[in-house]
Amino acid sequence: MSKMHLKLKVNGQEVETLAEPRELLIHVLREKLDITGPHIGCETSHCGACTVDMDGKSVKSCTVFAAQAQGAQITTIEGIANPEGMHVLQEMFREHHGLQCGFCTPGMITRAWRLLQENPNPTEEEVRFGMSGNLCRCTGYQNIVKAVLAAASEMNSAKEAAE
């Protein structure tokens, strides 16, 4: 099958690659660009392990064709940490034991990262609803929810302190 010239901005860097239009974004990221943080858990958009941020929205990259991603700005788990160190979400997931096997974690954190931009001060219920597109088999979510709420609180305090 003929390939298209794909140009993306991934984690702040311009990248180019050749891909069949039918190729899924998750495969382009993982196989062509060596960005292996996002994982494949179902390939049917149910589990959210492949969640990345595309043009300001959380998407399941197993259900986005390479062709649909042409010219998009993409952020993956690899692009979330600050140059100074881990993002507060990453720290809070560790602090509150919000992960076990780690397979869902990149998608979870990438989703939470967008959720807290959409809603910087969510209730527990809003976190549970906003994260419900991401499945976890290990944690029972309780500590994930705790981690996201703690991150929101830290981020809000930091923002207040800066103002």
């Binding site: 292996t36 943080g37 996002p38 990453q90 560790r94 992960l99 990149p106 954190i109």
Partner: peptide, 21 residues
């Protein structure tokens, strides 16, 4: 004790079988 595994997993640096290339 906080987990030593987490720094890798939270930053997308796990190494699962599908990451082997």
């Amino acid at each position: 004790r906080k987990r030593v595994e987490d720094a890798r997993f939270t930053q997308g640096k796990g190494n699962y079988v599908d990451d082997v290339k």
